[in-house]
Amino acid sequence: MNQIVDRSRDIGEFVPQPDDDMLVCRCEEVTKGEIRKAVHDGMWTITEIRRYLRTGMGLCQGQTCARLVKGIVARELGISPAQLEPATARSPMRPIEMKVLGKEEVSDTWQ
């Protein structure tokens, strides 16, 4: 982890694979092929992939696909998944309506 990936490294051309149409991110409906292509488009970090394709940015916030996406990107880059920094963790950790998040009431009546 935290290893700087050398961006000048040649990872070869995008080669289509038979399972490229496999859905990986269930919420945003992103396929394996799209993720692999994104790597060849220069998106080498999980954060870049997320912003480029919206993987893991849907309702579940990557609960299901984070590990899968990491594996696909790592394989495409020829590195171990452990070398990829996971996505930034930030609040809110679960889906929450804007009106609730925005309210942030301080209440002492919980008990």
Binding site: R26, E29, C60, Q63, T64
Partner: peptide, 22 residues
Amino acid sequence: YTKKEHKPRGIFCAIGRCTDCV
């Protein structure tokens, strides 16, 4: 049914994490 592909979804994790059953 999903927005992009119009595919059916149902219960998947059953504990409120995957959001597929919304």
